[in-house]
């Protein structure tokens, strides 16, 4: 198949600014965008800079914009992207400074990730063995752990574009990973930070991040789940009308039944002393009511999980 790959190029050392360069090449039908770029780099133009490594959508190196939207070059089929003239347009991600060609500076991206204290903070002495937690509670985190930190969501986030302070979809999804982790004991503090300006309430729910994420992390849904959790632990009161708006939005929102949005932490952990001698997780303070070892759709009646949780449960039960 004959294609024209049009690449938006830039090298700070020459004085050309940003410009488009077209590469014509012959490549097999099922080639990816990355295959094409590698072919260019190896056969025509060794000065073309990009990052890539795994070729299988797992290292997060090769995010770039293809025909105007952020994607991984390595899991994007060339043939799906070319226009009638056989052309595709490839550019570096937006919302990142460009170092050269398709390579962007990710310092700010990582600074924002660091802003959410992205490490597990458990309470009390560690158990001798593993923390005991339901498979559901771990599995539902697998969705966010699948994030490869590629930056595609940040590139296309409509708020990031206007507000550089916004923590952004990737970092907030990362925050969810801890707030949602039954082993973490700092969710209230975390939510306090996320509740501030530039945090969870800055998202306009434009859905871009969900659409471009190559790993199905659905950052926006995580942000909504964080909002719900923030309200449930009492932060909602401080945000006034803004919250009220969102709140009523959410009430109408069928998204309640969306697993991604359930504050799973409270579902995930169950009665530990009954199980061998494993020390319980820090969260046990929360879970006063006993959970049987069968825990599927049975939300425990937890003290400081408020009315919202009850609604969650009701809806869940309705769902069967």
């Amino acid at each position: 198949m004959q294609v024209i790959v049009s690449v938006n190029r830039f090298n700070p050392k020459d004085n050309n600014g940003k410009y488009w360069e077209d590469y014509n090449l012959e490549i097999e039908e099922n080639a990816t965008v990355l295959d094409a770029l590698i072919k260019i780099r190896e056969e025509t133009d060794g000065s073309l800079a990009m990052r890539c490594s795994c070729r299988s959508a797992i290292c997060g190196s090769c995010a770039m914009r293809v025909n105007g939207h952020a994607r991984l070059a390595c899991n994007t089929k060339l043939a799906d992207m070319t226009d009638e003239a056989g052309m595709i347009k490839v550019e570096p991600m937006t919302n990142f400074p460009v170092i050269k060609d398709l390579v962007v500076d990710q310092q700010m991206f990582w600074d924002k990730v660091k802003q959410v204290s992205p490490w597990l903070q458990s309470e009390g002495p560690e158990p001798k063995g593993e923390y005991v937690a339901s498979n559901e509670s771990m599995n539902q985190l697998a969705g966010v752990m699948a994030c490869i930190m590629c930056g595609a969501c940040v590139s296309d986030c409509s708020v990031m574009e206007v507000d550089k302070n916004f923590i952004g979809p990737a970092a907030l999804a990362k925050a969810y990973r801890f707030v949602g982790d039954p082993r973490d004991s700092k969710s209230v503090e975390r939510l306090g930070v996320l509740n501030e300006y530039s945090g969870i309430w800055d998202c306009t729910r434009c859905y871009e991040c969900v659409e471009v994420c190559p790993k199905g992390v659905a950052p926006m849904d995580r942000i909504m789940a964080l909002r719900e959790e923030a309200i449930s632990v009492g932060y909602g009161d401080t945000m006034g009308a803004r919250h009220a708006d969102v709140f009523s939005d959410l009430v109408e929102d069928s998204g309640w039944l969306d697993e991604l949005r359930l504050p799973i932490k409270t579902v995930g952990i169950f009665n530990l002393p009954a199980l061998l001698n494993f020390a319980p997780v820090g969260l046990r303070a929360l879970v006063k009511g006993k959970m049987p070892a069968i825990f599927h759709h049975n939300v425990p009646n937890v003290q400081n999980v408020r009315n919202l949780f009850k609604r969650v449960r009701n809806d869940q039960n309705k769902d069967g």
């Binding site: 490490w119 597990l120 458990s122 560690e126 001798k128 063995g129 593993e130 923390y131 005991v132 937690a133 339901s134 498979n135 771990m138 599995n139 985190l141 697998a142 752990m145 982790d181 082993r183 169950f270 199980l275 061998l276 494993f278 070892a293």
Partner: peptide, 21 residues
């Protein structure tokens, strides 16, 4: 080592009892 990794935060798959599967 496995337990240490779990304590650091790795979300290993669990069995029916909530233990590492």
């Amino acid at each position: 080592e496995l337990i240490d990794l779990e304590h650091m935060g790795v979300i290993f798959n669990r069995d029916d009892r909530g233990l590492l599967g």
